[in-house]
Design a protein around this nucleic acid. Structure first.
Length: 492
RNA sequence: CGGAGUUUAGCGCAGUUGGUAGCGCGCUACGUUCGGGACGUAGAGGUCGGGCGUUCGAGUCGCCUAACUCCGACCA
């Protein structure tokens, strides 16, 4: 593990840092399948925490879960012109449904006789299959709204993959809603953006900027894409979630109409919104340090780990008795605890291991503590230790967990603020973009200018912040008038 | 898909002019240890990514192929 520290303290290659860290932190590894990942149990436990919390928030906002097919007939995908153009280049295609024994030797080959008449696409997203289904569900304004979410996996055959941030297969949730009016759909898209932002900030402790995507960055088939953008420790931005106002594009493509109160047919208004296992990448890259992960207490698979320090079985028994009482007390306060009394590892090894895993609070208790009725408490975010009395330890830890949650959020927020600045000339922009972070600049609103900036600097408009104040100015590239600043950054 | 690199034990790696396959960590057993990644002794573990070739002989040389990593291109 010394090599990990050496590795992670190198700053010249953050991607390498990141990949090695997550692998060694036992969260995920690359699988033998191109661009896919194996999420190990500890990593999956974090994902389950994310899922559970988001699912609760979806339910609170009136949504229900459903499930739609993995395979999409090729013809469905091509019904909406922009949509197919956006995804066609990254689809996995199923062409056959059977293998047979290789007549010329060992192994199996694709059976040419089993060729599908129409190829099936492994879903890159489910708008098309869902809207072809909604057509049958929607006839009247009384059938609306439909507020469905599905937890699923999707496949996007990216040319270049990056663990957690852009894997060929990833887990996500996708909400697909149908509404009677434009206003209601727009409100839904905005509402879900707020849900995502609240989740990111309150649970992941990752501050995000809520905004609107420029036309260049808009979802294929959407009229408006809302997003939350996070800032990673290496100065690159990460799109952490999106919520799309789809207008009537999919309703028209799949001919989904309803009879309104006046008995007139109308096309349905739609939204879709999603977050993925990329959130785990955001979590890791926002908070981790050279000792490994730092997890926010609200998403840690276990919030507290207790390590006993003992010389023999009698000592362990005495410690365990004391620990059992503490565990019961913590459990009563809904705090999850792991007691690691494994005999085959030394305390020092365990300390290092749980730091790597990002467990928010570590308690160590030994013979010395039994005598003094104390316990050693270490918080992962600051790596500071103190010895406190066992009396009232439960409430002490409850408060400490809240403090850690708040502290890592504030730390991430301060970092983001420190790398966010206003830039007024394109010359200055070219210099500043090399340093990373968000640059708030004036832009003339044209795709051409954005494209030019991207080509010359690799920076894109991350979003037009929703709370950006009106501030008349002039585009830093063309000098044309601009109403407000937009956020530029290099991104993952 | 272009450029570069990698592929040898569970993990990380070495392997020189082609000549019996190595190191560290981990693993197993025993003992001593245990408050920040312990130590000793003895062990187990490999058709060197795959294929074809050159050669008396290939981890090493040649060709082909696959996968992975990084940089591009691409990308909600």
């Amino acid at each position: 593990m010394a090599e990990l520290k050496e590795l992670t303290s190198r700053e010249e290659n953050y991607s390498q840092w990141y990949n090695d860290l997550v692998v060694k932190a036992d969260l995920a590894e690359n699988s033998a399948v191109r661009g896919c990942m194996v999420i190990k149990p500890y990593g999956y436990a974090i994902w389950e925490k994310i899922q559970r919390q988001l699912d609760d928030m979806f339910k609170e906002t009136g949504h229900v879960n459903a499930y739609f097919p993995l395979f999409i007939p090729k013809s469905y995908l091509s019904r909406e012109a922009d949509h197919v153009e956006g995804f066609a280049k990254e689809c996995a295609v199923v062409t056959h449904y059977r293998l047979k024994t290789n007549a010329e030797g060992n192994g199996v080959v694709v059976d040419p006789a089993a060729k599908l008449e129409e190829e099936l696409i492994v879903r890159p997203t489910s708008e098309t299959i869902i809207w072809s289904t909604y057509k049958n569900w929607i006839h009247s304004y009384r059938d609306l709204p439909i507020l469905c979410n599905q937890w699923a996996n999707v496949v996007r055959w990216e040319m270049r993959t990056r663990l957690f941030l852009r894997t060929a297969e990833f887990l996500w949730q996708e909400g697909h809603t149908a509404h009677a009016t434009r206003e209601e759909a727009l409100e839904e898209a905005r509402k879900m953006l707020d849900v995502y932002a609240e989740f990111a900030e309150k649970y992941m402790a990752v501050p995000v900027v809520k905004g609107i995507k420029s036309p260049n960055e808009r979802f294929a088939g959407a009229l408006e894409t809302f997003c939350i953008e996070a800032m990673m420790q290496d100065g690159k931005a990460l799109q952490a979630g999106t919520s799309h106002f789809l207008g009537q594009n999919f309703a028209k493509a799949f001919d989904v109409q309803f009879m309104n109160k006046d008995n007139q047919p109308e096309y349905v208004w739609a939204t879709s919104w999603g977050v993925s296992t990329r959130l785990m990448g955001a979590l890791i890259m926002s908070h981790s340090d050279n000792n490994g992960l730092v997890l926010p207490p609200k998403l840690a698979p276990y919030q507290v780990v207790i390590v006993p320090i003992y010389k023999n079985a009698e000592q362990l028994a005495a410690i365990t008795e004391k620990v059992d009482a503490i565990r019961a007390g913590l459990k009563a306060l809904n705090i999850s605890v792991k007691y690691d009394d494994a005999d085959n590892r030394k305390p020092g090894w365990k300390f290092a291991q749980y730091e790597l895993k990002g467990v928010p609070v570590r308690l160590a208790i030994g013979a010395r503590d039994l005598e003094n009725n104390t316990i050693e408490v270490m918080r992962r975010d600051t790596l500071t230790k103190e010895t406190v009395s066992i009396d009232g330890i439960e409430n002490y830890i409850k408060n400490l967990l809240d403090d850690i949650q708040e502290n890592i959020y504030q730390k991430a927020l301060k970092f983001r603020q420190s790398v966010t600045r206003e830039v007024n000339s394109y010359e200055e922009f070219k210099v500043e973009i090399e340093k990373g972070g968000f640059l708030a600049c004036h832009w003339d609103g044209t795709p051409e200018t954005e494209e030019r900036i991207k080509e010359e600097t690799k920076a894109t408009i991350r979003c037009i912040p929703l709370d950006a104040p009106e501030e008349p100015g002039f585009c830093m590239v063309t000098g044309k008038p601009s109403k407000r600043r937009v956020l530029f950054a290099r991104s993952y």
